[in-house]
């Protein structure tokens, strides 16, 4: 049996839940067709999560590519199809292009080892200064901090996921509130073991009365817990939390059936600090959003 998974027109962190609601009940070895023909836009989160979705399936899925030429071209520029071709059976015309996309700070990039993190950091430093300082009016100090945050979230894949994942970085206009404001977004997705299973693998781990994906996210993100006994561990995400706090940004992490968010002080986004009972998706999906500075 083959099931068609309809992808919403606008594919970002919230709307990706519609995809997962369709996929989660299906057996892993059931063939799926991911239908993006009517997609009009995808955030870095949407693209990296689509790749993680294919990785999570036992049976190689089919991907119907977007029909709109500008969408297909944009996904090509993001290097999405380059990676998708290895994970999906692509159906439809893929518009290839060599033109650079100016809003893209980092194309969809595979992360599976420490060297990949070095490559990402080297690459982003060359592009981040202009995008963050000139386009988003942010203080020059942000470039290094931004790169540090990127490095830390990529390392989570290498250190904890147990398998490879994806990262992408882009600037775009956020239209959720206030009629649009530029943002820069880092998205990282992997289909690995996830936060709960990672903590459960800690030596001497003892299950609490209430223990679920939400609790595991709270322990890790808010209290710096780690599966390692080394007290130096768990500082990466704490540093990312401080970074988003200092720049009125937002950090959201989804793992298993829960999503936790460190919310901005400003009113450019409204979200719940913790959402539970979501459809199950393995691994972790991280999104960091930093808004432009407005006078």
């Amino acid at each position: 049996m083959t099931t068609i998974i309809n992808v919403p027109h606008s594919l970002e962190d919230k709307s990706f839940e519609q995809v997962l609601d369709q996929v989660a009940p299906l057996p892993l070895d059931e063939k799926i067709i991911v239908d993006t023909r009517h997609a009009r836009w995808a955030s870095p989160y949407g693209l990296t999560a689509l790749l993680a979705l294919a990785q999570s399936r036992a049976e190689r899925p089919i991907l119907y590519v977007p029909e709109a030429e500008n969408v297909s071209t944009y996904w090509s520029r993001m290097d999405f199809f380059k990676h998708a071709a290895e994970l999906y059976e692509l159906q439809g015309r893929v518009k290839s292009t060599k033109a650079a996309e100016t809003s893209v700070l980092l194309e969809v990039t595979s992360i599976s080892k420490s060297d990949d993190v070095h490559s990402v950091v080297d690459k982003i430093q060359q592009r981040a200064q202009d995008a963050l300082v000139k386009n988003l009016n942010l203080d020059a100090k942000i470039t290094m901090r931004f790169t540090m945050a990127l490095s830390e979230v990529c390392q989570n894949i290498v250190e904890h996921a147990g398998r490879g994942g994806w990262v992408a970085v882009q600037t775009y206009t956020w239209r959720v509130r206030l009629g649009g404001r530029k943002v820069v977004v880092i998205a990282v997705a992997d289909p690995g073991i996830g936060f709960r299973q990672s903590l459960e693998s800690a030596p001497g781990f003892q299950r609490k009365d209430r223990w679920d994906d939400g609790q595991a996210l709270e322990e890790t993100v808010m209290r710096g817990a780690s599966r390692f006994r080394d007290p130096g561990r768990g500082q990466g995400l704490a540093g990312v939390r401080r970074f988003v706090g200092n720049w009125d940004g937002k950090l959201s992490i989804r793992s298993g059936t829960a999503r936790i968010a460190v919310l901005p002080k400003g009113d450019w986004d409204e979200d719940e600090p913790l959402v539970e009972d979501l459809s199950y998706f393995p691994g972790a999906q991280v999104q960091i959003t930093i808004p432009e500075r407005v006078a």
Partner: peptide
């Protein structure tokens, strides 16, 4: 040294 992240600072 360009960038020093938390993991490297710890190590």
């Amino acid at each position: 040294v360009g960038l020093l992240d938390f993991s490297c600072a710890d190590e």
